[in-house]
Design a protein around this nucleic acid. Sequence first.
DNA 1: GTGAAGTGCAAGTAAACACTTGCATTCTTG
DNA 2: CAAGAATGCAAGTGTTTACTTGCACTTCAC
Lengths: 201, 201
Amino acid sequence: MSAVNDTADRILNAASELIATYGYVGTTTRAIAERAGVNEVTLFRRFESKAGVLRALAARMAQRQAGYAVAAAPDSESVRDTLLALARMEIAGAIEMGGLAMRLAFDAASVPEVAELMGEGPPGNLEGLAEYMAERQEAGELRGDIAPEVLAEAFFGLTSSYVMYRTVMGVGDLPADVTADRGIEQLFDVFWSGAVAEGRE
Amino acid sequence: MSAVNDTADRILNAASELIATYGYVGTTTRAIAERAGVNEVTLFRRFESKAGVLRALAARMAQRQAGYAVAAAPDSESVRDTLLALARMEIAGAIEMGGLAMRLAFDAASVPEVAELMGEGPPGNLEGLAEYMAERQEAGELRGDIAPEVLAEAFFGLTSSYVMYRTVMGVGDLPADVTADRGIEQLFDVFWSGAVAEGRE
DNA sequence: GTGAAGTGCAAGTAAACACTTGCATTCTTG
DNA sequence: CAAGAATGCAAGTGTTTACTTGCACTTCAC
């Protein structure tokens, strides 16, 4: 990595960690620069403003998240495997970003600069998953007596609160390996047993 | 209500709404005073400092929450009814406070003044519920192949994300009547069907 | 080896912040 | 009605914030 990008990256990394912990308004440019081991002036020369840092951060996030989406594509044979994989992906992504996306989703409701960047965000995800749930209901794989939006909300509610508890609120331990963690599977299993069509599991 | 308490109450109400939306650091004493229709100086004369307002707010919150706890006491005949009632109570309480408690639980991780006041908070709740879950597992009413902590986390994950989506992130509509809302019962039912011991429902 | 780009450092800006002081005015209460 | 408490208003404090300017230094491509 060239020295020039290294500086920018260190700034973005520092901003990512601080914003994830203290939120956008609670994070100062001075603190970002300090943690990045860089002069505060450099931050402004590279990113123009605090909002500029946020924009660059969001861009980098979107880029990485795109990588996840691709990895998600191969939807597994069974609905259960697909959803469990999605849950693990959601959790892994959110944890790898240190709760940044989660914190930003939170801040979007109150900080205009953040709201601009988040776009559809959670509502979009929710809608998309609800469509999938509806399909699987029609196929008789998920129980039909619950609205698909509710199933989607239950799913995301579990994954997002799992991450929120651990990264933002400091409750519980982070899993060593998300792709194999037993606790995640148990949590998912509560959802799954409640969502699967009777006589199907 | 006497005029003197009225002033203090208006300040606390304003602070409650603003902090719920913008967080503790994002809320200014000027904004609180303005929304309360009161001079900023009055706020300081009554509450000494911004942290003082927060303390008073927490005290009032604890007092109201105590009311809920009493109402909760009569644990219903069936586990299902008990947990559904608890879910409705949690949601009603959080909504009535306009997401304040939720936002504060969030801020506690990063704002020392908030952390001091929140005490055990979510971890305490989680532990308490996990104990109840363990009891019901031993009684054969809840499935035994899932750790009680996971069951408790699933429960609170659903109720808290339900409120979080609606109050903080602006996703979905608030229920007109929490005690009767069908959506809440559906959401709870996903949890319940996944948590109940086989052949028990 | 020269020039341009990137960075550090010192100093400074204007605005916003929590919080204070002094005084005039209103409200409450005995 | 008188006294004291509660409030409003105007003007301030010192600190922190995002952001700027000017200058010296290094690095590296050509």
